[in-house]
Amino acid sequence: MKLGMSCYCLDPAMASGQMSVDDVVDYAVAHGCEHIEFVPFRLAFVTPERTLDWELIDHVREKCKSAGIEISTYSVNADLLKTDPEEEEREIERVKRHIDAAQGLGLSRMRFDVASFRRPFSTNTIYDFNREFPQMVKNGTILC
């Protein structure tokens, strides 16, 4: 087992400008982490226009390499349960760009949530899960 952390743990410090992504990587290494997860809340690997920020991707990949820490995963929130077909397609394309970003960071795997945090919490019931499971599988399969 390897000790690691998510950059999300220091998201408030990045949001306030107290820490940069380099500071987060250095913090992880200084505290004995062997790997780090990137959650792009404060890291615009994918721009609002859905293009990749290759300068940032390359910088983070090389920073981790030079610091001697493995990038273990890349995680994004998604809502693959859109009811409008156009919104569903836009969301799938958005997640695909994040898959491209993960690949650019050197990863062969990533995690994406199917519906967390992008929908009202009240819709996260076992009834809704059972009803929406076929759509989760369909859209998850498109991304894999």
Rank of each mutant, 00 (worst) to 15 (best):
Y27M: 13
V24W: 02
T47R: 13
H59K: 15
H35K: 09
L56I: 12
P48W: 04
P48I: 09
D58H: 14
H31V: 07
V46I: 01
P48Q: 06
A30W: 02
M19F: 14
P40N: 06
G32D: 05
V60R: 02
E62H: 12
E55H: 13
G32E: 07
A28R: 02
V21T: 10
M19W: 14
H59S: 15
D26L: 11
E34C: 02
A44N: 14
D23R: 11
W54N: 13
V24D: 02
H59G: 08
V39M: 11
V60H: 03
E34S: 12
E34I: 00
R50A: 03
A28F: 01
P48K: 06
I57W: 00
D53Y: 08
P40S: 09
T51N: 11
S20E: 09
H31N: 15
E55N: 15
I57R: 03
T47A: 08
I36C: 09
G32C: 04
G32S: 06
D26Y: 03
T47F: 05
L43Q: 14
A44W: 02
P40T: 05
W54Q: 11
D53I: 05
F41W: 10
D26W: 03
T47K: 10
W54C: 02
H59M: 11
I57K: 01
F41T: 14
G32T: 05
W54S: 05
V25S: 00
V21F: 13
L56N: 03
I57H: 02
E49T: 12
T47E: 10
E62N: 12
R61M: 09
R50S: 04
V60E: 09
V29A: 09
E37T: 12
V25T: 03
L52R: 01
I36M: 15
D23N: 12
A30K: 15
D53L: 11
L52P: 00
M19S: 10
I57A: 02
Y27L: 10
T51I: 01
D53P: 05
V29P: 06
S20A: 12
A44R: 14
E55M: 05
V39I: 14
W54I: 09
V60Y: 05
S20I: 10
